[in-house]
């Protein structure tokens, strides 16, 4: 333990230092000037302070008040040394925050047990702090594990939907990353951006409920078939809704609204403008842009700049102007994401 003794009379300083030494293997730091002692304590936070009452320039009461006002010495054990008769001073010391007293002249029979008590108090304080830190760390780990499992479940769900869809490869990673980039550019708070990144891959999970003959039909869909195809938004919502997980709640919202259009011509509810949740408006841009720039059985991948111009042209009709503006502003990042998650040609 680290013990500081602040005392201006050398005889007492040496006497107390020797008594402390005989108590065990403790580091003892001595100060005859209270200002220097205080500065050292503030910087190095010892385990116990023993401070004399009567000292030049700064008395023990003022010393203790300074300690108690600081964060690092706020609840450290402090012993104040006074004459037994100084009752008023003892009351003032308790008021200032002294933990206990030592009586002058120093008496080993009192000194040793009191110092030992203070060190035991300090030890239990340290143990308690350690326990609290340990517990906080365990909670953090457990929470992190839960989040990791949730992310995994979400990714597996998204993968399940992917199996039903010709949109293969890195589509879901790309569109989720585009969505997060746009959200960040708009200025959504970082936790929301992170949630969007996790939720966006599930936007097409409702395709699990779309019949094969429609989902995998090579040619153009009839109006009736197209109506059934549109239902993947509602089915996705039904799969994901009413979860207690914020990520799944957001995913349900995205599944339902990512085919809505800003001018009200989208589906399933023909919602308009800001009646469409921001998540749906963002994912709409990311999803369309990725579809345009990816190879499909029926089309080539569009040139990136052509796709960008197309998206910008749809501002106000298909897309929210705030989202396309953000998309345009973070174009460099969009290009990086596209390059990072490039589909291998043979995988198409």
């Amino acid at each position: 333990m680290n013990i500081v003794i602040v005392e201006d009379t050398p005889v007492n300083l040496v006497l107390m230092q020797n008594l402390v030494k005989r108590l065990g293997d403790h580091d003892c730091k001595l100060f005859s000037e209270p200002e220097l002692g205080l500065a050292w304590c503030m910087a190095d936070a010892p385990d116990l302070i023993i401070v004399d009452y009567m000292m030049p320039r700064m008395d023990g009461l003022e010393f203790i008040r300074h300690c108690r006002a600081s964060e690092q010495l706020g609840n450290l054990p402090i012993l104040m040394v006074t004459a037994a008769a100084d009752k008023e001073i003892r009351y003032a010391a308790l008021e200032a925050g002294a933990t206990d007293f030592l009586t002058k002249p120093i008496d080993k029979n009192e000194f040793n047990p009191r110092v030992r008590n203070m060190l035991a108090l300090r030890e239990s304080m340290i143990a308690e702090t350690r326990r609290a830190d340990l517990l906080a760390e365990e909670v953090r780990k457990a929470t992190e594990e839960i989040h990791a499992r949730e992310r995994e479940t979400v990714m597996r769900l998204a993968k399940a939907a992917e199996f039903r869809d010709p949109e293969t490869g890195y589509h879901i990673l790309r569109m989720a990353s585009y969505s997060a980039a746009i959200a960040r550019q708009i200025g959504l708070p970082p936790p929301m951006v992170e949630q969007l990144l996790q939720a966006a891959p599930m936007h097409d999970v409702g395709k699990l409920g779309t019949p094969d003959h429609i989902l995998l039909k090579p040619g153009k869909l009839t109006p009736e078939e197209f109506e059934i195809m549109r239902q993947h938004t509602v089915i996705g919502y039904e799969i994901l809704k009413n979860s207690t997980s914020p990520v799944l709640q957001l995913a349900a919202e995205i599944a339902l609204t990512h085919h809505e259009k800003f001018d009200g011509s989208g589906y399933p509810h023909a919602q308009q403008g800001e009646a469409i949740p921001i998540s749906g408006r963002i994912v709409a841009v990311a999803d369309v842009f990725d579809a345009l720039t990816s190879v499909r059985p029926y089309k080539q991948a569009w040139d990136l700049d052509v796709a960008r111009n197309y998206v910008m042209e749809q501002t106000g009709s298909h897309f929210d102007p705030a989202c396309t503006e953000a998309f345009d502003a973070c174009w460099e990042e969009i290009l990086e994401i596209h390059a990072k998650y490039r589909d291998e040609p043979q995988s198409v």
Binding site: V11, V14, L15, L19, D107
Partner: peptide
């Protein structure tokens, strides 16, 4: 009696005084 019968300590403190 005050210092636990430690004559060595007594002498050390006397020197300091």
């Amino acid at each position: 009696n005050q210092i636990g019968g430690d004559l060595g300590l007594l002498h050390e403190v006397a020197k300091v005084f």
